[in-house]
Nucleic acid binder design. Structure first.
Lengths: 121, 121
DNA sequence: TCCTCGCATAGACGATCATCTATCAGACTC
DNA sequence: GAGTCTGATAGATGATCGTCTATGCGAGGA
Protein backbone atom coordinates (compact mmCIF):
# COMPACT_ATOMS: atom_id res chain seq x y z
CA UNK A 1 0.00 0.00 0.00
CA UNK A 2 1.35 3.40 -0.99
CA UNK A 3 0.59 6.15 1.50
CA UNK A 4 2.76 8.95 0.14
CA UNK A 5 3.96 9.58 -3.37
CA UNK A 6 6.13 12.68 -3.54
CA UNK A 7 6.77 13.91 -7.05
CA UNK A 8 9.88 15.88 -8.05
CA UNK A 9 7.76 19.01 -7.66
CA UNK A 10 6.57 18.09 -4.18
CA UNK A 11 8.11 20.62 -1.83
CA UNK A 12 6.73 19.25 1.40
CA UNK A 13 9.67 18.61 3.70
CA UNK A 14 8.01 16.07 5.93
CA UNK A 15 7.83 13.38 3.29
CA UNK A 16 10.89 11.27 2.68
CA UNK A 17 9.87 8.48 0.32
CA UNK A 18 7.07 6.16 -0.59
CA UNK A 19 5.93 4.04 2.27
CA UNK A 20 5.47 0.53 1.02
CA UNK A 21 3.80 -1.60 3.64
CA UNK A 22 3.72 -4.80 1.65
CA UNK A 23 4.24 -7.41 4.32
CA UNK A 24 7.53 -9.19 3.61
CA UNK A 25 7.28 -12.97 3.32
CA UNK A 26 7.94 -13.85 6.94
CA UNK A 27 7.91 -17.63 6.75
CA UNK A 28 9.94 -17.70 3.56
CA UNK A 29 12.50 -15.34 5.04
CA UNK A 30 12.78 -17.48 8.14
CA UNK A 31 13.33 -20.58 6.06
CA UNK A 32 15.97 -19.05 3.81
CA UNK A 33 17.67 -17.42 6.78
CA UNK A 34 18.01 -20.84 8.39
CA UNK A 35 19.59 -22.25 5.22
CA UNK A 36 21.92 -19.27 4.86
CA UNK A 37 22.98 -19.66 8.47
CA UNK A 38 23.91 -23.26 7.76
CA UNK A 39 26.34 -21.98 5.13
CA UNK A 40 27.60 -18.99 7.10
CA UNK A 41 30.61 -20.74 8.59
CA UNK A 42 34.00 -21.00 6.83
CA UNK A 43 34.55 -24.56 8.04
CA UNK A 44 31.24 -25.69 6.57
CA UNK A 45 31.94 -23.96 3.25
CA UNK A 46 35.32 -25.68 3.10
CA UNK A 47 33.66 -29.00 3.89
CA UNK A 48 31.28 -28.49 0.97
CA UNK A 49 34.19 -27.58 -1.30
CA UNK A 50 36.08 -30.68 -0.24
CA UNK A 51 33.12 -32.98 -0.76
CA UNK A 52 32.25 -31.38 -4.07
CA UNK A 53 35.80 -32.00 -5.27
CA UNK A 54 35.43 -35.73 -4.71
CA UNK A 55 34.13 -37.89 -7.57
CA UNK A 56 30.36 -37.73 -7.70
CA UNK A 57 30.33 -35.07 -5.01
CA UNK A 58 30.53 -37.84 -2.42
CA UNK A 59 33.14 -38.31 0.30
CA UNK A 60 33.57 -40.13 3.60
CA UNK A 61 34.17 -38.20 6.79
CA UNK A 62 37.51 -39.84 7.43
CA UNK A 63 39.05 -37.72 4.69
CA UNK A 64 37.52 -34.44 5.75
CA UNK A 65 39.03 -33.99 9.20
CA UNK A 66 42.73 -33.65 8.51
CA UNK A 67 42.66 -31.05 5.69
CA UNK A 68 40.59 -28.67 7.81
CA UNK A 69 42.59 -28.81 11.02
CA UNK A 70 39.62 -29.38 13.30
CA UNK A 71 38.73 -32.38 15.43
CA UNK A 72 36.54 -35.26 14.28
CA UNK A 73 33.59 -34.35 16.53
CA UNK A 74 33.65 -30.85 15.11
CA UNK A 75 33.46 -32.16 11.55
CA UNK A 76 30.66 -34.50 12.60
CA UNK A 77 28.79 -31.57 14.14
CA UNK A 78 29.11 -29.47 10.99
CA UNK A 79 28.05 -32.33 8.71
CA UNK A 80 24.96 -32.83 10.82
CA UNK A 81 24.00 -29.18 10.37
CA UNK A 82 24.60 -29.38 6.62
CA UNK A 83 22.49 -32.55 6.41
CA UNK A 84 19.67 -31.06 8.50
CA UNK A 85 19.56 -28.08 6.15
CA UNK A 86 19.41 -30.34 3.11
CA UNK A 87 22.78 -29.52 1.55
CA UNK A 88 24.14 -33.05 1.89
CA UNK A 89 22.77 -36.53 2.42
CA UNK A 90 24.28 -39.15 4.69
CA UNK A 91 24.78 -42.78 3.76
CA UNK A 92 26.45 -45.55 5.74
CA UNK A 93 28.70 -47.84 3.70
CA UNK A 94 30.16 -50.52 5.91
CA UNK A 95 32.04 -48.78 8.67
CA UNK A 96 32.23 -45.51 6.79
CA UNK A 97 29.79 -42.63 6.64
CA UNK A 98 29.53 -41.01 3.23
CA UNK A 99 28.16 -37.55 2.66
CA UNK A 100 26.93 -36.51 -0.76
CA UNK A 101 26.26 -33.00 -2.02
CA UNK A 102 22.68 -32.15 -2.97
CA UNK A 103 23.31 -29.68 -5.80
CA UNK A 104 19.66 -28.66 -6.01
CA UNK A 105 19.68 -27.22 -2.49
CA UNK A 106 22.64 -24.98 -3.25
CA UNK A 107 21.19 -24.03 -6.62
CA UNK A 108 17.82 -23.08 -5.14
CA UNK A 109 19.45 -20.84 -2.54
CA UNK A 110 21.65 -19.21 -5.17
CA UNK A 111 18.65 -18.48 -7.34
CA UNK A 112 16.79 -17.00 -4.37
CA UNK A 113 19.59 -14.48 -3.89
CA UNK A 114 19.70 -13.67 -7.60
CA UNK A 115 15.93 -13.18 -7.65
CA UNK A 116 16.22 -10.87 -4.67
CA UNK A 117 18.79 -8.82 -6.56
CA UNK A 118 16.28 -8.38 -9.38
CA UNK A 119 13.30 -7.44 -7.22
CA UNK A 120 13.55 -3.70 -7.82
CA UNK A 121 10.22 -1.91 -8.11
CA UNK B 1 46.55 -35.21 -4.35
CA UNK B 2 45.04 -38.66 -4.69
CA UNK B 3 46.40 -41.22 -2.25
CA UNK B 4 43.99 -44.12 -2.81
CA UNK B 5 41.96 -44.98 -5.84
CA UNK B 6 39.83 -48.06 -5.22
CA UNK B 7 38.34 -49.55 -8.36
CA UNK B 8 35.12 -51.56 -8.38
CA UNK B 9 37.33 -54.67 -8.32
CA UNK B 10 39.34 -53.46 -5.35
CA UNK B 11 38.50 -55.81 -2.50
CA UNK B 12 40.62 -54.19 0.18
CA UNK B 13 38.34 -53.40 3.10
CA UNK B 14 40.46 -50.69 4.64
CA UNK B 15 39.93 -48.18 1.86
CA UNK B 16 36.81 -46.09 1.88
CA UNK B 17 37.17 -43.51 -0.88
CA UNK B 18 39.63 -41.29 -2.67
CA UNK B 19 41.42 -38.93 -0.36
CA UNK B 20 41.50 -35.54 -2.00
CA UNK B 21 43.75 -33.23 -0.07
CA UNK B 22 43.30 -30.21 -2.29
CA UNK B 23 43.43 -27.37 0.19
CA UNK B 24 40.04 -25.65 0.19
CA UNK B 25 40.18 -21.91 -0.50
CA UNK B 26 40.43 -20.72 3.08
CA UNK B 27 40.37 -16.95 2.55
CA UNK B 28 37.60 -17.17 -0.02
CA UNK B 29 35.52 -19.36 2.26
CA UNK B 30 36.00 -16.96 5.14
CA UNK B 31 34.91 -14.04 3.00
CA UNK B 32 31.80 -15.73 1.63
CA UNK B 33 30.91 -17.09 5.07
CA UNK B 34 30.95 -13.53 6.40
CA UNK B 35 28.61 -12.40 3.62
CA UNK B 36 26.31 -15.36 4.12
CA UNK B 37 26.18 -14.65 7.83
CA UNK B 38 25.06 -11.10 7.07
CA UNK B 39 22.06 -12.59 5.25
CA UNK B 40 21.37 -15.38 7.74
CA UNK B 41 18.80 -13.48 9.77
CA UNK B 42 15.09 -13.33 8.90
CA UNK B 43 14.82 -9.66 9.90
CA UNK B 44 17.64 -8.71 7.55
CA UNK B 45 16.15 -10.71 4.68
CA UNK B 46 12.83 -8.97 5.22
CA UNK B 47 14.59 -5.61 5.28
CA UNK B 48 16.17 -6.40 1.92
CA UNK B 49 12.79 -7.47 0.53
CA UNK B 50 11.19 -4.27 1.77
CA UNK B 51 13.91 -2.04 0.33
CA UNK B 52 13.92 -3.93 -2.95
CA UNK B 53 10.17 -3.38 -3.26
CA UNK B 54 10.65 0.39 -3.13
CA UNK B 55 11.16 2.28 -6.40
CA UNK B 56 14.78 2.07 -7.47
CA UNK B 57 15.52 -0.36 -4.64
CA UNK B 58 15.94 2.62 -2.32
CA UNK B 59 14.11 3.36 0.93
CA UNK B 60 14.53 5.41 4.06
CA UNK B 61 14.76 3.79 7.46
CA UNK B 62 11.64 5.53 8.74
CA UNK B 63 9.50 3.21 6.63
CA UNK B 64 11.30 0.02 7.57
CA UNK B 65 10.70 -0.11 11.31
CA UNK B 66 6.96 -0.47 11.61
CA UNK B 67 6.33 -3.30 9.09
CA UNK B 68 8.89 -5.50 10.83
CA UNK B 69 7.75 -5.06 14.42
CA UNK B 70 11.19 -4.31 15.83
CA UNK B 71 12.55 -1.13 17.37
CA UNK B 72 14.34 1.56 15.44
CA UNK B 73 17.79 0.82 16.95
CA UNK B 74 17.38 -2.80 15.92
CA UNK B 75 16.68 -1.80 12.32
CA UNK B 76 19.64 0.57 12.43
CA UNK B 77 21.85 -2.23 13.71
CA UNK B 78 20.78 -4.59 10.93
CA UNK B 79 21.21 -1.96 8.24
CA UNK B 80 24.73 -1.31 9.44
CA UNK B 81 25.56 -5.00 9.08
CA UNK B 82 24.05 -5.11 5.61
CA UNK B 83 26.00 -2.01 4.60
CA UNK B 84 29.27 -3.34 6.02
CA UNK B 85 28.83 -6.50 3.99
CA UNK B 86 28.17 -4.53 0.85
CA UNK B 87 24.53 -5.44 0.25
CA UNK B 88 23.27 -1.88 0.61
CA UNK B 89 24.70 1.62 0.47
CA UNK B 90 23.79 4.45 2.80
CA UNK B 91 23.04 7.99 1.74
CA UNK B 92 21.93 10.95 3.83
CA UNK B 93 19.20 13.08 2.26
CA UNK B 94 18.32 15.95 4.52
CA UNK B 95 17.24 14.45 7.80
CA UNK B 96 16.58 11.06 6.32
CA UNK B 97 18.94 8.15 5.78
CA UNK B 98 18.33 6.25 2.57
CA UNK B 99 19.54 2.75 1.98
CA UNK B 100 19.86 1.38 -1.53
CA UNK B 101 20.23 -2.23 -2.62
CA UNK B 102 23.46 -3.20 -4.36
CA UNK B 103 22.17 -5.90 -6.71
CA UNK B 104 25.66 -6.98 -7.75
CA UNK B 105 26.54 -8.11 -4.23
CA UNK B 106 23.50 -10.38 -4.02
CA UNK B 107 24.08 -11.62 -7.55
CA UNK B 108 27.73 -12.49 -6.88
CA UNK B 109 26.82 -14.47 -3.78
CA UNK B 110 24.06 -16.30 -5.60
CA UNK B 111 26.42 -17.24 -8.38
CA UNK B 112 28.98 -18.47 -5.87
CA UNK B 113 26.42 -20.92 -4.48
CA UNK B 114 25.39 -22.06 -7.95
CA UNK B 115 29.04 -22.58 -8.91
CA UNK B 116 29.53 -24.63 -5.74
CA UNK B 117 26.58 -26.80 -6.75
CA UNK B 118 28.32 -27.52 -10.05
CA UNK B 119 31.74 -28.29 -8.63
CA UNK B 120 31.41 -32.06 -8.86
CA UNK B 121 34.57 -33.90 -9.83
C1' DT C 1 18.60 29.85 19.38
C1' DC C 2 15.80 26.44 20.98
C1' DC C 3 12.97 22.55 19.81
C1' DT C 4 11.81 18.56 17.22
C1' DC C 5 12.72 14.81 14.37
C1' DG C 6 15.44 10.92 12.33
C1' DC C 7 18.77 7.85 13.23
C1' DA C 8 23.19 6.15 15.20
C1' DT C 9 25.65 4.57 19.30
C1' DA C 10 26.35 2.57 24.02
C1' DG C 11 25.61 -0.86 27.10
C1' DA C 12 23.12 -4.82 28.95
C1' DC C 13 21.20 -9.38 28.65
C1' DG C 14 19.67 -13.81 27.25
C1' DA C 15 20.19 -17.03 23.40
C1' DT C 16 22.80 -19.34 20.09
C1' DC C 17 27.14 -21.01 18.24
C1' DA C 18 31.83 -23.27 17.31
C1' DT C 19 34.95 -25.87 19.35
C1' DC C 20 36.98 -28.91 22.52
C1' DT C 21 37.55 -33.44 25.54
C1' DA C 22 35.46 -37.56 26.96
C1' DT C 23 32.56 -41.19 25.96
C1' DC C 24 29.36 -44.23 23.51
C1' DA C 25 27.50 -47.16 19.67
C1' DG C 26 27.84 -49.83 15.65
C1' DA C 27 30.55 -52.54 12.24
C1' DC C 28 34.31 -55.19 10.94
C1' DT C 29 38.55 -58.43 11.98
C1' DC C 30 40.86 -62.06 14.12
C1' DG D 1 33.79 -62.72 21.77
C1' DA D 2 37.62 -59.46 22.37
C1' DG D 3 39.83 -55.90 20.13
C1' DT D 4 39.85 -52.19 16.67
C1' DC D 5 38.19 -48.65 13.95
C1' DT D 6 34.76 -45.03 12.42
C1' DG D 7 31.85 -41.66 13.61
C1' DA D 8 28.05 -39.87 16.62
C1' DT D 9 26.70 -37.90 21.12
C1' DA D 10 27.18 -35.47 25.67
C1' DG D 11 28.61 -31.75 28.18
C1' DA D 12 31.48 -27.67 29.01
C1' DT D 13 33.24 -23.19 27.72
C1' DG D 14 34.21 -18.93 25.61
C1' DA D 15 32.61 -16.08 21.75
C1' DT D 16 29.20 -14.04 18.97
C1' DC D 17 24.52 -12.54 18.08
C1' DG D 18 19.78 -10.23 18.23
C1' DT D 19 17.20 -7.40 20.76
C1' DC D 20 16.08 -4.05 24.03
C1' DT D 21 16.29 0.71 26.70
C1' DA D 22 18.68 4.89 27.21
C1' DT D 23 21.18 8.41 25.21
C1' DG D 24 23.79 11.24 21.87
C1' DC D 25 24.22 13.78 17.49
C1' DG D 26 23.22 16.24 13.37
C1' DA D 27 19.79 18.48 10.36
C1' DG D 28 15.59 21.40 9.85
C1' DG D 29 11.93 24.36 11.33
C1' DA D 30 9.97 27.99 14.28
Amino acid sequence: MITALPSPTDHRQDVCCQSISVAPPVDESRDFARKLKALSDPTRLQLLHLIAAHPGGSACICHLTEPLGVTQPTVSHHMRLLAESGFVTREQRGKWAFYTIRPGALKDLGEYLIDLSRLHG
